[in-house]
Write a protein that binds this DNA or RNA. Structure first.
Lengths: 386, 386
DNA sequence: ACCATTAAGTCCACAATCTGCACATAATCC
DNA sequence: GGATTATGTGCAGATTGTGGACTTAATGGT
């Protein structure tokens, strides 16, 4: 049951710090007077709160505002990225990646290590990731940044910090946080599915939409639903497994135990067939190779069918295709979109728009780092000890 | 963007009233000392808050607690249903229904009016519903209850208070609240999909589970997902349209424009075939009628397939079958459950349990009334003018 | 150039609410 | 019947926000 705690003076202040900081983030540089107007707090209170935020180094004054109006010009306050930053981490089948993002969501550092991680020992991979992270953190700290948390994207479903299964890594039930052992408190470190974090990457670093289903085409197919700026995770955090939605009840067997799942038709293995890589596939598609075109068409139709079910169940504002689906978008758009709008029929005024992801392979690490930034802004008092 | 308001002294108090009242609701009768313990507030503060709640008539003292311990016995405080109540309304194809539920979730009044509402004029039906509601409200007020809000369940998707389409009523784009014109403020009246409200009915009046997918088998098939005690509605409030999830991509045409939707195999029309009613179908099933058994088996398998997709996308804690699926549960459970667990395969430790709804046809009105009660408890200061 | 006007930001007395401790109250235990 | 223990309330004090007066820094008209 909801055993929620009462509110005391300090939580009131904490909340108001978050409100002011959130408003500065959402509505760009603002003067104290404008902040008072927008938050409903008095100028006095806003002044005191802003002063604390200035001391903490999370905001900075932007110089006088020259808006041509009469009267004393205000001093606008904006988010400052010079002190607080967070760490985004990713383990994928082919690489490890790390980035540092500051409070303004500027990417400060970024590093990738290519590695064949198929069927590898968790301890080994996580050790590599730790040393990668440590070097990046040291560099960030040398630049005067304080890393206030981290999040890690993994290629598989995560339940309460436990990686249930990562089929292509060959991992099962791995307590990732314990093995990785970074020097963060539990509250400041999170592990989540690659698709969920990539969806958040699209949210904060992409096109600016606040409601969409991000479809992550990797070796497997996942999806992350963003509704009004936050990810829907379901009961155990396992929502969004688009790859195993039923497309053809009597179709070919899938590794999951089912038959005719989306992954069978549109997973990376199905798309590539005998082709070696995605860039090569794109080259063949551009050259008009019939086998490649047929595979894409089939994948697109299957994707359209799975998305039909997803739209009925999840009601996304739009659909963003990412991962390997991004470079293939020109060949997937028509069969998938056609299938989707035919099937949805009269159920919707207009079917959700199909769009290509605005950011590339970095989606997941950016989303991971952004998630922690989000938390700092949502509760600066806790994150900064104000 | 989240232009949220700052917190002032009065909102702090409002929040604490809600915390205390919520705790009393969730954890049964509690003494002031126990409340202080649980909320983290001091005994002094809790005393003052409880005193206000007593004055408002939403809680009552329960007599001394005799728990065999030493020391002064506390006086337990419990929710009191003698003053505040809410109204639940439903329009369905075959009937109108109304109920009054008090703060303790006790059903105080209940009335159903059978009517053939197929292809009827909205003004007419809503007029009938209004007079039904008015008589029930008058009766409730005569019993000393104050009706502090209402919610209405309708058989179709609702987007921002607009009933988009109710195929079996023959309605399209109806502004239900305006036509119904009950004397409630906008904040105190809500229209929602029958499946969503039935799901909430199951939550508050059913088995006690807090995470489940409620599947509502009516003329159409809808579903309401409850995660941690609240309904997931998607971007436009259209989530949970289980009836049009793809079961067989090349199956028979559905009235929605698609093919092989769940509704084609497991909608009421498909289940009944030439049989006249659900009770008659049940009788035939009990008698072993092969045609009836085959229809149910086919419906169960189709339901299992649609639920497979739903489980992958929505990650429900369990699955509750309601509406006409409730009486048919004995014949649906095996084919649906078998299909579901085979298909989910290794993706889950255990597939979500299939259960039958604990409440009957009243699910939607109970959920509707309960929703408004929930709001009163969530913000007693606003709802009661404290 | 100067002064009225306008708006931003700060100062200070005051108000709302919660805390912490003391204390009265009402049981049980021996 | 007195020691012990726990509940609930009263009162002073702390924290935080409010509201209006005041200072500051511009513009614009004379």
């Amino acid at each position: 049951m909801g055993s929620s705690r009462g509110v005391r003076h300090d939580s009131m202040r904490a909340r108001n710090l978050a409100v002011v900081l959130g408003e500065i983030r959402d509505a760009g540089p603002l003067t104290r007077a404008a902040l008072a107007e927008r938050t409903g707090l008095t100028k006095t209170t806003v002044s005191k709160l802003v002063s604390d935020l200035l001391d903490a180094g999370v905001v900075a004054e932007n110089g006088a505002v020259r808006d041509g109006e009469r009267g004393r010009p205000g001093v606008a306050v904006r988010l400052s990225g010079h002190r607080v930053a967070t760490l985004g981490l990713e383990i994928n089948v082919d690489y490890l990646a790390v980035c540092v993002v500051d409070l303004t969501l500027a990417v400060r550092l970024r590093r990738t290590k290519w590695a064949g991680n198929r069927d590898s020992r968790p301890e080994h991979i996580l050790g590599e990731l730790r040393s990668l992270a440590e070097s990046v953190v040291a560099e960030a700290e040398a630049a005067g940044l304080r890393i206030s948390g981290a999040a890690l994207a993994v290629p598989g479903p995560v339940e309460h910090g436990l990686l249930r299964t990562a089929p292509h890594l060959g991992w099962r039930d791995v307590r990732v946080a314990d093995l990785l052992d970074l020097p963060f408190k539990v509250d400041d470190f999170e592990v989540d599915n690659e698709a969920n974090l990539a969806a958040l990457g699209e949210l904060w670093f992409g096109s600016g939409a606040r409601d969409f289903l991000y479809v992550s085409g990797e070796i497997g197919i996942g999806a992350g639903l963003v509704v009004d700026g936050s990810v829907f995770r379901g009961t155990y955090g396992l929502a969004g497994e688009l790859g195993h939605v039923v497309v053809e009840p009597d179709g070919p067997a899938c590794r999951c135990g089912g038959r005719g799942c989306l992954e069978v038709y549109a997973g990376q293995d199905a798309l590539l067939g005998k082709v070696g890589s995605i860039p090569e596939l794109v080259a063949r598609l551009e050259a008009g190779d019939p086998a490649a075109l047929a595979a894409c068409d089939r994948a697109g139709r299957a994707l359209g069918l799975a998305l039909t079910s997803a739209v009925h169940l999840l009601d996304p504002g739009m659909i963003v295709l990412g991962g390997v689906f991004a470079p293939l978008f020109p060949w997937l758009e028509e069969p998938a979109g056609e299938t989707l709008s035919t099937r949805l029929g009269q159920m919707r005024r207009t079917p959700p728009r199909l769009a290509v992801s605005a950011i590339g392979a970095d989606a997941a690490i950016l989303g991971a780092a952004g998630l922690v930034i989000q938390r700092v802004v949502a509760d600066p008092a806790r994150a900064l000890g104000l």
